[in-house]
Amino acid sequence: MHPTLHRLLGQLDRRQRLAFLGLVGALILGPAFLDRYLMSIMILVFWYAAVGQAWNIMMGFCGQLSLGHCLYSGIGGYVAALLWVNYGIPPWLAAVPAMGIACACGIVIGWLAFRYDIGGVYFALLTIAFAEMARIAFDNWAGGGGAAGLFIPLIPAADAGLWTLSGGPLQFYYLMLGLAITSFVAAAALRASRLGHEWLAIREEPEAARALGIDIYRAKLAAIIVSAAITSLAGVFYAFYQRNLFPSDAFDVSRSIIMIMGPIVGGLGTLMGPVIGALILTPLGQILIALTERLVGHAVPGASLLAYGALLMVIISTNANGVWPGLSRRLGLAPRALR
């Protein structure tokens, strides 16, 4: 086993290790028991768990509130899709420039904001502004499909496969599960590293962190780069899963908001928070859609979202720290010091 992974597992007690490996095992065996519809929901759960983890690195660890994370997933998706559609470059190769460009966007935003200590709501607005500018740019850029959207043509089933990200639900189930696990392990490793401790120090007390000699600017930039890289890779996978991209959808503020709700509802700054949040919120949205259709007999635009918004207010009013801290204590999975 990889030494980092080994060390991370070593930090868990027996009960935690069993629960963690049990969860991963159950998810790996999942497709044997799930139908097509439930598989599609789990694919979304994994996706939101992965991008939630990426956002959690910036906000939960480092305390920088980004409300424009759709910028990175959108850029990732668009760059990879354009390279595949126009030049036939397979998405696994195109993911490199896709992540590179997304990271470059993150560096520009970080450079603008962190140099001047722009934080909190101001930083949040700056991130929204960049996502909106990307939306307007892609809306008006004919080469990228414009407002009419960009489509990734389907491949004949005989040639479809993992290399071109063109397989069926089963392929994307394991792909997104792998992505979620990778981002989880990356977040765990980073949190245990020196950089992770610097992030926590910056989040808790920036002045004290500076006094300790931490290079705050560099650490914050590192957070935004890591976060952008994971989110853009997730964006590549998502684009090839959906096989279409629209600026009004890929760069929409609501996309960013849905991304960050998982970690906040699950438990900000915790490793399991984004996972639990995605497991609660994604099915909840689907259940509400199905429920309104069942109750009213037809789809009511807005009804399920209205209930979603109301539930969100209830969850945040009653669970100050998110669901996971309380839940983990009840399950006996909390760190020993907190039990």
Binding site: A303, L305, S317
Partner: peptide, 30 residues
């Protein structure tokens, strides 16, 4: 509602207000 959030973290207030925003705009839509 909001008074109990005055002393809470920025992101908690944000989620509360986003929830309210979603309720309002979808109420109008319905």
């Amino acid at each position: 509602l909001i008074n109990s959030f005055v002393a809470r973290a920025e992101h908690d207030q944000f989620i509360l207000m986003v929830g309210l925003a979603i309720v309002l705009v979808n109420g109008c839509l319905m």
